[in-house]
Simulated assay, not measured.
Amino acid sequence: MARDDVKIVEQFLDAAGEGDMDTVVEMSHPDYIMREPESLSYGGTYESVPDLFADMDAAYEDFSWDLQWVTQAGDQVLCYVSVEGTPTGGTAFESTAIELIRVEDGLIIEEEVFYRDTEKILQASQ
């Protein structure tokens, strides 16, 4: 089971990184929840991947991540990612993040991201 969850998360993040919204939506559980840090311009809780991506598209001129490693811990999949982006009207930044992802019935049901330095992202936005 754990290996399947890791594989599902890797496929989900690959599709999201490629902008394959059809696959991302297809892999999302009907009760999907995503939590982004409240301090960010698009921060908060999302119940829809397209809504999250729409807000991120508005917040950034470009944004990308590179999955460094992924592992299973209990019912959570932990991902360590390097991120880089340029906020709309801001300057480029680089950071890292841990993402906790939970899979239920073979679908992504919950995500929560913890950026190493949200202040750096906020400063890049000014």
Rank of each mutant, 00 (worst) to 15 (best):
L100H: 12
V25H: 02
E36K: 06
I101Y: 03
G19L: 07
Q76P: 00
Q72C: 09
E111G: 13
Y46G: 02
M1W: 12
L107S: 01
A16K: 08
H29I: 11
D66R: 14
T91Q: 15
M1A: 12
S41L: 01
S39I: 06
L13E: 05
D62E: 11
T118H: 02
V113P: 01
S64D: 15
V103K: 01
T91G: 13
Y60K: 06
L122G: 04
G90I: 13
E26A: 10
V81M: 11
S41F: 09
V83K: 13
S41I: 09
M56L: 12
A15Y: 06
T45M: 06
M27V: 04
R116G: 15
G74N: 02
T88K: 14
E84R: 14
T86C: 02
I8E: 09
A54E: 12
M27G: 02
G90C: 10
R102T: 15
L78C: 10
D117H: 08
D62M: 04
D117V: 10
Q11I: 05
Y115N: 11
S41N: 09
A15N: 08
S64C: 11
I98V: 14
F93P: 07
Y80N: 08
G89W: 11
D5I: 14
G19F: 07
V81K: 11
A124C: 13
D22M: 08
V83S: 13
E84S: 14
G17I: 02
G44E: 02
L107Y: 10
G74S: 04
Y115V: 13
F63G: 03
T23C: 00
V103Q: 06
D22G: 03
D66S: 15
E112T: 14
I101M: 12
P30M: 09
L13Y: 11
L40M: 07
L107E: 12
G106M: 08
G19T: 09
W69F: 12
Y32G: 01
K120V: 14
W65C: 05
A58I: 05
L78Q: 11
C79P: 02
V49K: 04
E94L: 00
L107H: 12
A58S: 03
T91V: 09
F63R: 08
E119P: 04
F114G: 04
Y80W: 15
C79I: 07
A2S: 15
E18C: 00
V83N: 14
D62C: 03
S95D: 15
F63A: 06
I33R: 13
Q68K: 08
V9G: 05
P50A: 01
V6A: 06
D75C: 05
V9S: 02
E110R: 11
Q126G: 00
L40Q: 01
V81A: 11
A73L: 10
T23E: 10
Y80P: 04
S82C: 05
A59Q: 05
I109T: 14
S82F: 00
P50R: 03
D4T: 05
D5K: 12
T118Y: 03
M1S: 14
